[in-house]
Amino acid sequence: MPRDELDIRLKNDLGQLEPLIEEIEAFVERADIPPTPAYRLQLAVDEFFNNAVDYGYPDGRAGEIHVHVRRTADGLELTFSDDGDPFDPFSNAPAPDLTGSLEERRIGGLGVHLVRTLSDHFAYRREHGRNVMALRFALQP
């Protein structure tokens, strides 16, 4: 595995979250990522993975989630993709209303709000039947 890159494909199964997080932790250590961007990266992967598994495959079909991370000179580039139903988290998730009841909250609203706010750049595209989220985190926030 290259020192400055991480490339993992996983099944859409919540049991895959723990091994995925272990891979992320090993990556941020070997790529020498400072604590704050390391945390932001882990949070983004965690939130996207949970949203994709929980809501992307309502018919229960098997799917594939792809996580790619690259360390550049001054940042981290994350590309997260899944073959779940089309869903743009950034256009569908307004800032959550914390005063409302938890049940009223939109799906994934709080998690996506965090990820969007803590990233320096975010973009969504639907490509070859996949939801593709591209994010960037500065190494020196």
Partner: peptide, 15 residues
Amino acid sequence: PQVHEVFDVSGFSTM
């Protein structure tokens, strides 16, 4: 600090 940041960004720090 990283957990504090998440509390701030989510609005929890004001609640």
